[in-house]
Design a protein around this nucleic acid. Structure first.
Lengths: 112, 112
DNA sequence: GTCATATATGTAGTCTGTCTACATGTATAC
DNA sequence: GTATACATGTAGACAGACTACATATATGAC
């Protein structure tokens, strides 16, 4: 997910959090979700299709997002994803969980 | 690693960082490393043996730590791990990498 | 004396999630 | 016509963390 290869991964388990957060902006298709995360992270993250679509599948299976085919403003078919109520609840849980974890890491690293 | 089961993992890839950081305190055996991380994180992390020892093996294979059998103050045999110069360099790289990533996450989550 | 607990190390097998690489196709700009 | 951006997905590999197991000693409580 990171663009710092070799061995470019860190914070797996966070992709679902970032996707759910992104979907609070409204329904988006996969490509737009990826672009949004990349842009907001200032290109620290690169969301690969091989990570994104399986992640969207998982989110859907868990009932945290739903999806439907629609047409984009540029007339192409795309699958739009929408966060559900359960997804928002999950997002809240994951956000506070991330908060706790990053605080704990900060304590171990000594900048707390 | 986290004590928030079910599905208790987040920030994998961070264990090596935390271990290297802990070893800057001096040579320690595995059990003490785990205890230190758990204590400093205020029990947010639980370092399982099944994660710790493979991680220490990896760090050793990469040349970032060395180890030797010694006797503990309580007279038991234990393998003491010591960070190497290469390990310190790696630690620096991983710390700044973590910094970059957590900033990027903060931006996506909107608290930046 | 014996039992529980804390100390101490490790392995086997599983699972999850991410990655690379591939496969497919359309719309738009040049 | 051809390159690029848009758009979705799959297959297979791999890393890293997890659970559960196996082993063993020192200390303190009873």
């Amino acid at each position: 997910m990171l663009d710092t290869r070799p061995r470019g991964d860190l914070v797996p388990g966070t992709l679902e959090l970032l996707v759910l957060q992104t979907l609070t902006l409204g329904s988006l298709h996969g490509y737009a979700i990826a672009q949004h995360i990349e842009r907001l992270s200032e290109a620290v993250f690169r969301v690969e299709q091989g990570s994104l679509y399986p992640a969207l599948d998982r989110l859907q299976r868990k009932g945290w997002v739903t999806s439907a085919w629609r047409e984009t403003p540029t007339k192409r078919r795309a699958r739009y994803y929408t966060i559900t109520a359960a997804g928002r609840k999950q997002l809240g849980a994951e956000r506070s969980r991330y908060e706790r974890v990053s605080l704990a890491i900060a304590r171990v690293l000594g900048h707390a």
